[in-house]
Write a protein that binds this DNA or RNA. Structure first.
Length: 491
RNA sequence: GCUCCGGUAGUGUAGCUCGGCCAAUCAUUUCGGCCUUUCGAGCCGAGGACUCGGGUUCAAAUCCCGACCGGAGCACCA
């Protein structure tokens, strides 16, 4: 075949290597193009699972093509989605944690003069005008495909009015700057959109320096060009943005980046959530904070012991399809299990403990593997009692033989009180875990509540680590105070 | 109402640009088995999908038309 059709062979090889690139599809690239990607959140709260998708997919592409990844804060709304001062740093932390450290960080609210400059340039081109219509009045013009009277104002008048906007002559909602598009555009969503509006509210980051703020469509359009963004990947709710912004790019003679839009993602376990709503409920005290284990924030997942590479793999496996999806966290658990299984030491934690008296002997020592595939051992000493979980206890019958893992095999003598005699090891008996007589208290915070129990003392030595409570699940040891341990349940 | 976009197993996903290697990939879920010291771990195996109708073609998940279903935009939010 090589002799007859060498170009075919080449093509086959090419296809083969392309297929091996699992996860995200390749990006359309111009020759020698340097890829610049960005993730542009509004820092009005902590990053959520939704943010993670933006951070991971964009940074992953930047990495694949040896390009640049920019984190840009689109924080030009001090009122409706008001930025949270601490959240700027939180985003940086979360990016670092997800192995997506940005090459550059841009804060829109600090670049206002830039946006003003382009506002002026557009007015001078006759491509933007100051509109005094109340929102509902403009809407009727828009629906009738009729330009509003202000659209016809001269460039000089518009410059004058724009300066009046900037110097505080007008009240909020009295005037806006609109971009001229096409009032007869088929799609009503495209007709003469608002670029700047007046908001006389201080901005958490830069105070009261400005009263005229750009909208997302304007700010991000200017920034994407200035930052040299080559590819934009974002939610499909912003699909129309591209068409609106295209008018701006045409006015300025710019070339729009290549875009890709993904559908809405819903985690089945969390339902719908918006950052604004999360913030409201946290501020009302409904949750402990942004890292409350019931929340879909990255801070919470970190506290629960999720591994960043698992979260990356999970979102990359989701791809960038435009359909809305409802995914189960189980998929992420599965990914995380692979990451965490190798590094989590095993311990015994007993939920709803029941005391079991061991009849023949006063003290016992178990030599237990820290990890089933390792060779490190831990010693668990106990007196003539152990504790087994309420769940296991409920299933016991008198005369039944069970193995206390790593310790001994016993035969149940009585259930109330629970007594058992140690017998010779036998094959094929059920194996259960247990806790020693000198156990420490362990509270496990789960997304659906707190479970209390006891566990072997060595658990206290794992502060900050992810461990597996055998036959229970993975947890991260969050705090150790004396003999009280608090663990966050991973899955 | 106007406009735009999408529809592959229970859940996601690959394949669709350029029709044939697709009796459709991978993961997860479910079910079964194994591991004589994890019945929330690990290993092995099984099951399960191209929304429907028409058209083009030797050949359609892939191209065209229509229907149905779903989502998004029409904000002085992002």
């Amino acid at each position: 075949m090589n002799k007859i059709a060498p170009e075919l062979v080449e093509e086959l090889i090419e296809r083969d290597t392309e297929k091996r690139e699992i996860g995200l599809p390749n990006l359309p690239l111009a020759d020698g193009e340097k890829v610049v990607m960005r993730f542009a959140p509004n820092p009005n709260g902590a990053a959520t699972l939704g943010s993670a998708r933006g951070i991971i997919v964009n940074s992953e592409y930047a990495r694949r093509y040896n390009g640049k990844f920019i984190l840009r804060f689109d924080d030009t709304d001090p009122v409706v989605k008001r930025p949270l001062l601490e959240a700027y740093d939180w985003y940086l932390e979360d990016c670092d944690w997800l192995d997506a450290k940005p090459d550059e960080v841009v804060v829109a609210s600090e670049r206002m003069d830039l946006y003003y400059k382009y506002a002026v340039a557009l007015i001078e081109k006759g491509a933007a005008y100051v509109c005094f219509c109340p929102a509902d009045v403009f809407k009727t013009y828009k629906n009738r495909k009729v330009p509003c009277p202000d659209r016809a104002a001269s460039i000089e008048t518009n410059m004058e009015n724009w300066n009046k906007m900037l110097t505080g002559v007008y009240a909020e909602k009295e005037a806006v700057l609109r971009i001229k598009t096409d009032m007869a555009a088929k799609d009503p969503a495209l007709r003469d959109w608002v670029a700047f509006r007046i908001l006389k509210k201080d901005h958490p980051r830069i105070g009261k320096r400005y009263e005229v703020w750009p909208n997302l469509d304007f700010e991000s359009a200017i920034e994407d060009h200035l930052l040299g963004i080559t590819h934009i990947i974002r939610g499909k709710d912003l699909m129309k943005s591209e068409k609106r912004q295209q008018f701006l790019y045409d006015h300025l003679g710019w070339q729009y980046p290549i875009t890709k839009h993904w559908g809405k993602i819903k985690m089945q376990e969390f339902g719908k959530f918006s950052t604004s709503e999360l913030r409201r409920r946290i501020e009302e005290g409904e949750y402990e904070g942004w890292d409350d284990p019931t929340l879909p924030t990255l801070k919470a997942l970190r506290r629960r012991g999720f591994q960043p590479e698992a979260i990356r793999k999970f979102f990359i496996s989701l791809g960038v399809s435009q359909t809305d999806i409802a995914v189960s966290m189980k998929n992420m658990y599965a990914e995380n299990r692979k990451a965490v299984d190798a590094l989590a030491s095993r311990y015994f934690f007993v939920h709803n403990p029941e005391e079991m008296r061991l009849l023949n002997g006063d003290s016992f020592v178990a030599k237990a593997l820290k990890h089933p595939s390792g060779t490190d051992y831990r010693e668990i000493k106990t007196g003539n009692t152990v504790y087994i979980s309420g769940g296991d206890y409920a299933k016991l019958k008198v005369g039944e033989k069970i193995r206390l893992k790593y310790l001994c095999t016993v035969e149940i003598e009585s259930l109330k009180p629970l007594r058992a005699k140690v017998i010779d090891t036998e094959p094929k008996v059920p194996v259960i875990h247990w806790a020693p007589s000198d156990s420490i208290n362990v509270k496990v915070k789960k997304p659906d509540g707190i479970e209390e129990g006891i566990g072997e003392p060595l658990i206290a030595s794992e502060l900050g680590n992810v461990v597996q409570f055998e036959r229970y699940g993975f947890v991260r040891i969050d705090s150790v105070v004396g003999k009280e341990v608090v663990a966050y349940f991973t899955h």
